[in-house]
């Protein structure tokens, strides 16, 4: 189920590039022209150019654009510092803040007719999740060396056979739940909007879902970022 009209796909088709009609294409070019890829690039370009245009040079007395970004970045900075401490925030702020901005914009862009959310494809969300999941283990190993395995061993030695599988399962569950939650919420929103557009678009039927969609988009971006922060800080902490 896709949006009725995706304008980038139409432009690419007019240019003679192969746009896959299934979920993914076969050849490399077809895969690169898949809607979720092209819209990912659109979001990336949007973030890059909007930041460049509104920010330009930093000034002591902020103008309109700089004011907005100071609010956004400052708010995120406080939020991260609350949840994982100042030192970790300074280290990982660029990565997590980029994730937050990218996911929020990617979620919200799907509300505009003619656009789709890149996050409504499992490929995108799984890629994001894998980065987070791998880097939280890297952080753990960096902070504790090989002693990081104690995180999976529980408090006392005779509980190890019981707790080791539990810890490993709940660690892999992070991978699954983080990716599928974002994908599922956004895909559901997109599908519902597409169906309502087709059924009763003339009577503004999608409007209430769009209002909910704004909430879902913001909350899902927030959930993803909050969980990233929590996983990072748990990997950094000492084992119980």
């Amino acid at each position: 189920m896709e949006h009725p009209i995706l304008f980038i796909s139409i432009i690419l088709e007019k240019m003679g590039l192969p746009v896959p009609h299934g979920p993914v294409g076969h050849s490399l070019l077809e895969q690169l022209c898949a809607p979720y890829m092209t819209y990912t690039w659109l979001v990336m370009a949007f973030l890059f150019f909007v930041a460049k245009l509104t920010l330009g040079d930093l000034e002591m007395v902020p103008g309109k654009g700089q004011n907005f970004w100071e609010l956004v970045i400052g708010g995120m900075d406080d939020f991260f510092a609350d949840n994982m401490g100042r030192e970790m925030t300074d280290k990982f702020f660029p990565m997590i803040a980029t994730f937050a901005l990218y996911i929020a914009v990617a979620n919200l862009i799907g509300l505009i007719p003619g656009f789709m959310s890149p996050t409504s494809s499992l490929n995108t969300t799984l890629a994001l999740t894998l980065i987070v999941w791998l880097s939280h283990h890297v952080i753990g190993f960096k902070a504790h060396g090989l002693g990081y395995y104690k995180h999976f061993m529980g408090p006392v030695w005779w509980l190890v056979p019981l707790l080791l599988p539990i810890e490993i399962i709940s660690n892999f569950a992070r991978l699954l739940s983080l990716s599928i939650r974002l994908f599922g919420n956004i895909m559901a929103k997109e599908t519902l909007l597409a169906i309502l557009f087709m059924l009763a678009g003339g009577f503004f039927a999608p409007l209430p879902i769009m209002i909910l969609g704004v909430l879902v988009s913001v909350v899902q971006a927030m959930v993803f970022v909050l969980l990233t922060v929590v996983y990072f800080s748990q990997a950094q902490e000492h084992a119980h």
Partner: peptide, 10 residues
Amino acid sequence: FTFAAAIMIG
């Protein structure tokens, strides 16, 4: 979702 995912993986 995490609850369900853990059961599914187990």
